[in-house]
Design a protein around this nucleic acid. Structure first.
Lengths: 130, 130
DNA sequence: CTAAACCTTGCCGCCGACGTCAACGCAACC
DNA sequence: GGTTGCGTTGACGTCGGCGGCAAGGTTTAG
C-alpha cells in the first residue's frame, strides 16, 4: 500500500504520515522508484498514534506504544514502557484536573462577584425602588 | 516609574511589558528622552493581566478587563464585556473538564487493562503455580 | 503525446507569549 | 572620558503537529 491509500484508510494526510516517519514512528519500505510502501500492520500503528494523540499524548510519549505493537503484541499498551507512560499521563491529567478545578472555582466566584456588583450599581443608579 | 521598576514590581520582564504595549494592553507616556513612563495605575493593570493569563486567558480575552479598570472601576470584571468573557471562559473550562474527565477514564481503563494483561502473561510464563 | 494523478524532497507558515540577542542612545558616577 | 547600567527598536528563536506550496519524477489512461 502506498502513502495515499494509507492516509485515506487511516483518516489522515500524506503530510502527516511523512511527519510521523521523520519522527521515527512509521517505517515504510521503498519500491524501486522511491515510493513509500507500507504493509498492513502500519495501518494499526497509525491508528494507535492517532488515538493517543487525540487524548493529549505527544509523539515522544507514543513511541513506546508503537514499539510495543511492533514487538508483536495485540495492543500497544501492555509493555512496561507503555505502562510507565500511561501512569505518568494519568498523574498529569489528575494534576491538570485539580488545577482546572481551581480555575473553575475562581472563575465562578469572580463571575458571582461581578454580577453582585452590577446588581448593586444598578440599584444605586435607579434608586432602591428601581 | 520607568519600565524596569514596573517590571520588577509586577514580577515580570521589560520584554513582557513592551509586548503588552504592542498589543494595546498597557499605555505608558514618554519622557523627553523617549523612555516609557508609567503611572501607578498601570501596576494594577499589569497585575490584572498576569492574574488572568495565569488562569488560561489569552491577551485578547483580557482586553475588556483592562478597559474596565481604566474606566475607573475598582475591579476589572464588573463591566458587561468582562462578564461576557467570564461566562464564555467558564463554559470553556466546563467543557474542557468534561473532556479531560473522559480522557482520564480512558487512561484509567487502558492502564487497568494493560496491567491485567501483564499479570496474565506472567502467570502463563511461569505456569499457573507461578 | 499529453494530461492527470500519483509520488518525491525541501522549506516556509502557523499559533502565543514571550526569551534573547544586536546595535544603538542616554544618564550618572569617578 | 571611560565604565556601568539604564533605556530604545528590530528581528529572529521557541514549542508541536502539522498545512501548504514549489519544483520536480513516475505511472497510467486516453
Amino acid at each position: 500500500m502506498r502513502i495515499g491509500e494509507l492516509a485515506q484508510r487511516a483518516g489522515t494526510s500524506t503530510r502527516t504520515l511523512r511527519y510521523y516517519e521523520a519522527h521515527g514512528l512509521v517505517r515504510p519500505h521503498r519500491s524501486a522508484n522511491g515510493y513509500r510502501v507500507y504493509d498492513e500492520a502500519e495501518l494499526r500503528v497509525v491508528r494507535e498514534i492517532r488515538s493517543l494523540l487525540a487524548i493529549g499524548f505527544g509523539l515522544d510519549d507514543i513511541r513506546p506504544f508503537v514499539a510495543c505493537l511492533r514487538a508483536g503484541n495485540d495492543s500497544g499498551d501492555v509493555c512496561p514502557d507503555s505502562v510507565a507512560v500511561l501512569r505518568r499521563k494519568l498523574a498529569e491529567v489528575d494534576d491538570y484536573l485539580d488545577r482546572l478545578g481551581d480555575v473553575r472555582r475562581r472563575l465562578h466566584d469572580q463571575l458571582a462577584h461581578a454580577i453582585a456588583q452590577r446588581e448593586e450599581t444598578c440599584l444605586r443608579t435607579r434608586g432602591p425602588a428601581g
